[in-house]
Design a protein around this nucleic acid. Structure first.
Lengths: 243, 243
DNA sequence: ACCTGAACACCGTTCAAGT
DNA sequence: ACCTGAACACCGTTCAAGT
């Protein structure tokens, strides 16, 4: 009936397979993606899927790759380089938290570095603006990346199993009764569990301060010059491209 | 022959099962631990194992718990509180790196917090010595813990897949050719890949400096009360036991 | 109290065969 | 070029039955 003059509907597309798989993963995590369920969902034989995507692992890889691309670039916000670095870290965290399964999948496949890319580009500019160059600059960039991604990994992990085993409560009560008993406010704060948003911001801020204020083994005073292009520790070669 | 007057050898012990399982995991990771292989290794029927340990998941849980306990306490080293905090972080990282599979297993089971415990206890003392109290102190402790564990997670992940997908090399070459082209040393450093040991130390040091020097939004001079036990940034309370 | 084999309900993947 | 069912080699787990 409906126009049979050509291969109008190729029946099953690689696109369709990816879409259906993405839906399954989004709902119940990658563990729930089984080739047989996927086939059922699509109304085809299991083996058809293999023709389109090779096998389960490359299917998952394709999904990860696609999602990573979707995350897109990161544009820093704020006035000082330090503030802008912090904003990049926070944006990165936001993106990762928005795709709860993605981070585990990327992690399991060793693609963490791949996911760094957009943020890394942004960070390079900022540490430059802060006056760092060369290897120390690279170190600062990586320190922030490791910090942000590592934090989210720990954070996500915590969220995954809300019931802590020995009961965080008790653990810190015991602690409170021991040598550190003179600081009940601390014991309470630890027992309450972390406030990830705040903790993240505080951590990154502290790290960035430490990194930018201390060009390894040189005086900490960053000079207040702040012409628009290259303020503090007077980088030698900030030449060409226009502001 | 050898004394048969009692249940000398109960044939199969929970201990034996755990030991054999631990061996399998140690060699090829938790993925390699299959109930059937384990049974073969032990020379028993698969179902006997179930009698002793319940099922695969609780078997793994027991393994994790046991290993976490083995890790033991952490004793800070160094003169200033900052240095001692850094030493705790480094000790924690060492332990985690020594049990490469453990960290993934703990992570997957949401027991990260559990693993924090020994290091956390040590850190509480140190931030106290640095003059922090209450909630900010708790925040500092957690910031360091998240930093250390997160770092190792990222680091381990990287080690697991030495071949990076888009080729870190190329990625940073392109970057080098773009806007950041004026800093070839940085491009080279990034393309070379991180030196985890150094990066970790630098990161933690920066974080700790940032945390201990800046009690969030209050004048940096700590020690309002602190009676005899806590002057600001001198290590005061090196407590009871011998020097 | 401890061990067993058989059986169930799942997997991912391959292959020869269809159109 | 695309789809198919049958089959293989694995899983974890349960159960009724042995001693």
């Amino acid at each position: 009936m409906a126009g049979r003059s050509g291969p109008v509907r190729p029946s099953l597309t690689r696109e369709q397979v990816l879409a259906a798989a993405a839906a399954l993963v989004k709902q119940h995590g990658p563990g729930a993606l089984t080739m047989r369920k996927l086939a059922a969902e699509l109304g085809t034989a299991v083996t058809s899927i293999y023709w389109h995507v090779g096998n389960r692992e490359s299917l998952l890889e394709a999904l990860v790759e696609r999602t990573v691309v979707e995350l897109g670039a990161i544009t820093p916000r704020g006035r000082t380089p330090a503030a802008r670095v912090v904003s990049v870290a926070r944006a990165l965290r936001r993106r990762l938290l928005d795709h709860p399964h993605l981070i585990a999948m990327v992690h399991e496949r060793g693609l963490t570095e791949r996911m760094f890319q957009p943020a890394a580009r942004a960070l390079v500019d900022e540490v430059h603006a802060a006056g760092l160059r060369g290897a120390p600059a690279a170190e600062a960039v990586r320190a922030v990346l490791f910090q942000a991604v590592g934090f989210v990994l720990v954070e996500r992990n915590r969220a995954r199993s809300p019931v802590q085993r020995p009961g965080e409560q008790e653990l810190w009560d015991i602690q409170g009764a021991g040598e550190g008993a003179d600081d009940p406010a601390l014991a309470r704060a630890l027992a309450r569990g972390p406030q990830p948003d705040k903790l993240f911001t505080v951590s990154v801020r502290a790290l960035v301060d430490g990194l930018l204020n201390t060009p390894p083994s040189t005086p900490p005073k960053a000079s207040p010059r702040t012409s628009e292009s290259t303020p503090p520790s007077a980088p030698p070669s900030t030449p060409p491209s226009a502001p």
